[in-house]
Design a protein around this nucleic acid. Structure first.
Lengths: 216, 216
DNA sequence: AGGTGTTTCAAACCTACGTTTGAAAATCAT
DNA sequence: ATGATTTTCAAACGTAGGTTTGAAACACCT
């Protein structure tokens, strides 16, 4: 087994360190030192720190989103009506079956997704919406279709409510799993959290409309 | 009306700039320049940037949490059984009636709360749990009490699901409200978002347990 | 008014960071 | 093998940031 290329070594280290400490708080020196490559290698191979951040996301999301897009395509062709739980489960299963390079890859990447939403990195949000926005829109369209009779206004906000639940609990999963174990003897893993999210989200989406609007 | 004290001017500027750009991305120079005070004033009055961050939170949360604690105290004395919606509404109303110094104070502070959870500022999390953890625990205890029959494991995770929903949608409310208006003609404000959260969360909390555990 | 403690101020200090440079080393093609 | 290209490396550059300093300005008390 040969030593991974410099590019891969950098991406591997950056992925972990970014997830652990955030983007601004992780220096290129920390990354290159962890990756055991020269400091200048990042600028040589990626151009800048910003482009490195995007590359970290691209390496994971490119295959993931392509696969998700394919699944959505197939389902739309079959046009079988799907329930809320099924649509949610589709995504969960897709995440769980996406081949992780390392055992706790999922946790790391959930943390990164959380950071992408919460850290003020304009370039990253732009990169993500430009690259994967279309696929995400298709997914939420399908989710919307599984909630007949719900006003768009509520559907709009509830999309973000479930997004917030997912990102918050997933990206903090490491700490939360430890608390759950220590304080309540709950022996879950990250898959269990996702499974627990489904009934919660499905019920929330199915709740009566907030205001007695006429869903015209 | 006299010019506000240096300390207040710093807190006012820091509050807004932190909410807008995050902690690490906001320099003391930006804050002091916005507040029209000398650079050294922060270190003189607060000691360090970290302590300034904590002071920003303390100024808002001290009275807020004291009030919440009082409400919880009163309710526990009356020991009337409360439903999920009522417990959620208690918090929402408490937020809405907490006197804002400025019109969009709530939005700013929701953003700060989001940052507190997502930015990797260990000292801040420590400060918040030490200062207000007890009150928050009491609130979640009350919420737990309003969901009879739900296993602790689900209640534990669902607490974080609703926390995530709230923090995510509230802290991004500015941008999301604009999108809602532009793309769907939804004319909400931050209060409307909170009201919309209640049925969603209540239904999610009331959903059947994830696994068919025996709630012993 | 004079003395004391507090607050402001400009300047400097020092560290950490992203990026650049130019030469050395390694890789590859012919 | 040799020349060209790509990759690595140590060192330096420039900047921006948090913090410190010491003197000046101010406020308060008697």
């Amino acid at each position: 087994m040969s030593r991974p290329s410099t590019v891969e070594r950098i991406l591997d280290s950056a992925e972990i360190l970014f997830a652990e400490h955030g983007f601004a708080e992780t220096s290129l020196r920390a990354i290159t030192s962890d990756a055991k490559v020269n400091l200048a290698a990042v600028n040589y191979h990626f151009g800048s720190k910003k482009e490195l951040i995007q590359a970290v996301f691209g390496r994971f999301l490119d295959p993931f989103m392509a696969g998700l897009d394919q699944s959505l395509e197939d389902l739309l062709n079959n046009n079988k009506k799907m329930g809320v739980e099924e649509v949610l489960e589709l995504l969960v299963n897709h995440i769980l079956t996406s081949k992780p390079r390392q055992p706790n890859d999922i946790a790391i990447f959930m943390k990164l997704m959380g950071l992408a939403y919460t850290q003020n990195q304009g370039h990253l949000k732009r990169f993500l919406t430009e690259s994967y926005g279309a696929t995400l829109d298709r997914y939420f369209e399908m989710l919307y279709g599984s909630c007949p009779g719900l006003p768009v206004s509520d559907m709009f906000w509830r999309s973000y409510f479930i997004l917030g639940s997912a990102i918050f609990s997933m990206s903090g999963s490491e700490a939360l799993l430890a608390i759950a174990k220590r304080d309540h003897g709950i022996d879950d893993d990250i898959e269990a959290i996702m499974r627990r999210m489904i009934p919660f989200m499905a019920a929330g989406l199915r709740a009566h409309a907030t205001y007695d609007e006429d869903p015209s």
